[in-house]
Design a binder for these strands. Structure first.
Lengths: 343, 343
DNA sequence: GCGCCGAGGTGTTACGTATAACTTCGAGGC
DNA sequence: GCCTCGAAGTTATACGTAACACCTCGGCGC
């Protein structure tokens, strides 16, 4: 135990370990790097490892990165972490990364508000690659500027730049929703759409309209709302208060908006699902917290993160990254039912 | 668009910038580091900056860290990011950090499941300090082992080690809840407690019992559940199905559990709040997504993150970190009301 | 007996940056 | 005219690691 006068007790370096084990620093590096099939004897290796753990040696990651030029670190750029979906994407990416001795650091892209900091500086680590959500608009230009391998999540196929892409089959999900509701007998729809104008939401609208166009007597009206419960509720209250025939089903771009729709219904005295069906999208924890539970589309968020990481690892290895298109699945719960007989 | 034959197009270094600007590397470092009050002429500085932006120069963070020994990077250890509370703590910490040119990287401590990876290795960057939630049990030993400045969030005052501490006044929050319900006339309580056994939950139980002990005819029963909606619902269903006088109010350790309690009530045909009052804790987005909206205790999650970062910065500067005790506030919404006349 | 070989290491270097120490040079003081 | 001084740079170095190239030495084939 050295008497630590310094504010920082000077972490031991590989040279300290070498001294303690009576070998050279190079040997320490070989042993701790696992590169000693015939280079270092078992006895020496043992002494080195003992010395390292005695001293509490922990390699200096900055020095290692500098030396290697690679950092085994990826940056994940998401619009917001408070959104459970992206928190799960992170979890998936980090889990797969860990298996390959990779790390994932985060950059929650400021959504317009807040100073748009440099994603790379804020990462605080040299990066080997980037995985970015298409919704993280605030950072996209910077990402394309840096010539790092880039994997895009849920992005418009027409946009250029990414080395690889992982998409969800959003269109199919919306198709499943629509068919479910049509099958129940619904014909008059309200589409509670996100006010955010990104590809993933455009796809939802297209798929909904596409599926309904094939049905003679189906009608749909669209209202937009910011991605929070209150905005969703207010938009639906306004829409249902408006004149004209009342829709029998509300298709929402997101579970959060669906929660708003349910609240609006309850406040207007409409029972869900008997008098009004509501569907969500994402299958957040929220979907099963509500009563009735939401019929929604389950998005494999963790899988998105995993596949994103997988694609990035492939690109870094020079392997081709197979384009990912992940299936989604309608989960029928209690918020949908046949329309009331009167309608 | 350069034709990239190399796998990595060799990012420009400060030396490349120096060459392009016709100066020495040291000058580039001075200019870009902002250390040129009288060291470098305005004209030269301009040339350097132009060259840097022409080449798209971006300092190598690993090299900088190695040189400086400090990284201006903190690790935030949380139990889970999908928990909105901790996502908000992160947001608060990161926001304040950014103002001080600090970065925050995350380690979501595996909750028992999953391989407990080394938090420091997984940080992928040399660290200046650590901010850890007391709930992140999976990583605490490792954190104490490393001699890094440590700030603990919401931790038991009796445990040792941390350089600083930021606590929420949980006890006061629970007191406010209890008094609110007592004031409404409730006397028979059910406490839906977290099965997780950490200090923050122990405090809730103590405060609740403390406040009720002062009231002659008040009774309380406790049931425990894991921190998810379903577990909460099931626990409450079992409790309410049991024989004996039915409680008129359910005090929950957490909004998520409260959502479960509300579901249980609805399934049992009990109207909230008319026949049963329910309170939460945390004021998550979920609290206002439910109908009726939850009466709950608002925790300033972002402030917790901010204060944690503030304390860490103070410790790193050698300043004393004033112990933080953040106030919390009861938010009365629609899930509480006087008990039914019959009771 | 000599050369060779492989096991088991060691010496040295470079990664890119920040900064302390030094150099150069023109202006000014006396 | 010489010395000083400040402005404006430059040279050199160290941070801790990984890995290349080298070294040493005992054993063994011939």
């Amino acid at each position: 135990m050295t008497s630590a006068q310094q504010p920082v007790p000077a972490r031991p370096t590989s040279r300290d370990v070498a001294r303690a084990a009576g070998v050279s620093q190079a040997t320490v590096s070989l042993v701790l790097g696992g590169k000693w099939p015939g280079r270092v004897s078992e006895a020496t290796a043992g002494r080195v490892r003992d010395a390292a753990s005695d001293l509490g040696y922990r390699p200096n990651l900055a020095a290692r990165s500098l030396r290697l030029g690679r950092t085994r670190t990826a940056l994940l750029v998401v619009p917001a972490l408070t959104n459970e979906f992206f928190a799960r994407v992170y979890a998936g990416a980090a889990a797969l990364a860990a298996e390959h001795d990779f790390g994932v650091v985060l950059y929650p892209s400021p959504d317009g508000t807040g100073p748009a900091r440099d994603p790379f500086a804020s990462a605080r680590a040299a990066l080997d690659g980037v995985i970015a959500s298409s919704m993280a608009a605030g950072a996209l230009e910077a990402l394309h500027g840096a010539d790092l391998p880039l994997v895009m999540l849920d992005s418009d196929p027409s946009d250029t730049g990414p080395a690889a892409r992982v998409n969800l089959d959003i269109a199919d999900g919306m198709r499943q929703v629509t068919e479910h509701l049509l099958g129940l007998g619904h014909r008059r729809f309200l589409h509670l759409a996100s006010a955010v104008d990104t590809w993933t939401f455009a796809v939802r609208a297209d798929a909904l309209h596409g599926a309904l166009d094939a049905v003679e007597d189906a009608t749909v009206r669209t209202v937009r709302a910011a991605l929070d419960v209150r905005a969703g509720r207010e938009a639906v209250e306004r829409a249902l208060a408006a004149a004209g025939e009342r829709p029998t089903a509300i298709v929402c771009d997101d579970d959060i908006l669906a929660a708003g729709a349910c609240k609006a219904a309850r406040r207007l005295g409409l029972r869900v699902p008997d008098e009004l069906s509501v569907t969500g999208f994402d299958d957040l924890a929220l979907a099963t917290a509500l009563e009735p539970e939401l019929t929604t589309v389950r998005l494999p968020a963790e899988r998105v993160g995993e596949r994103g990481m997988e694609a990035l690892l492939a690109v870094l290895d020079g392997r081709p990254a197979e384009p990912g298109r992940l299936p989604v699945r309608l989960v029928v719960r209690g918020s949908t039912a046949p329309p009331a007989a009167g309608a």
